[in-house]
Design a binder for these strands. Structure first.
Lengths: 121, 121
DNA sequence: CCATCAGTTAGTCAAATAGCTAACAGTCGT
DNA sequence: ACGACTGTTAGCTATTTGACTAACTGATGG
């Protein structure tokens, strides 16, 4: 019953498919009906529909029925949450690499001062 | 033959699994041997090994054999590439939403000037 | 040198995924 | 009212995934 859950699991999984990433790119530019999204896609309509459902269930996209069309549009929040996870990892990782680089540079400086016979046995 | 490909597909897929995200988080903090990663995981060793291979094949992690251990460490580049994709979508989407908000605010202002009978039928 | 330690390979299995076709169901224009 | 338009549902299939156990390989450490 409780679909439309915004779990990082689901969002990453949704974005792992090139068709779904293409949909996300189009919907980021502007909301569209299912038929508009379908036009350029090399697959059957029900297949596309299923991709849209996946995007909906992870919270990346919301849809509403208007007449006989279904309009799809991006939900900025899901994108932000996922971006935040990635940014967090990057910052932890890159902070550590920077510290390491600083440490190595410091080592080199110390070596230059204290002992130059390093290269000989 | 050509594994270790850094495709956005593979990176997103790799990150869609909570076990693999946990590995990424630990390796972002510091490189570790397979055994260290294994210790807190509630699964068999070969299962963990396979997760590590997935991370390796998408370019997120690199490993090297040292004695009888295998040391794993993060590859910052893969994280950056994926982060860039997400950031790009966010910027397109949020720029559009901002324009739309501005437009709506402008409409409201115009209405306030021209016609106040809006609320009555 | 041989037991233990740290992975590794191979093989099995259930569930999930992405694709298809065929048939059905609301809406709209005339 | 009815045909065309736009989805939608219901199966079916092949492939991939994430998990397991059992058996194997290559490095220590004593």
């Amino acid at each position: 019953m409780d679909n439309h859950e915004l779990t990082i699991d689901r969002v990453f999984h949704a974005l792992s498919d090139p068709t779904r990433r293409a949909i996300v790119m189009r919907l980021s530019a502007k909301p569209s009906a299912v038929g508009d999204l379908f036009a350029p896609m090399p697959m059957a309509l029900p297949t596309l529909l299923k991709h849209i459902r996946v995007l909906e269930e992870c919270g990346l996209v919301a849809t509403k029925k208007v007449g006989r069309e279904r309009i799809c549009e991006m939900q900025p929040e899901a994108l932000r949450t996922t971006d935040a996870w990635l940014a967090q990892q990057r910052s932890v990782l890159e902070a550590r690499l920077d510290r390491m680089e600083a440490y190595v540079l410091d080592l080199q400086k110390t070596e230059n001062k204290n002992g130059r016979r390093k290269k000989r046995k």
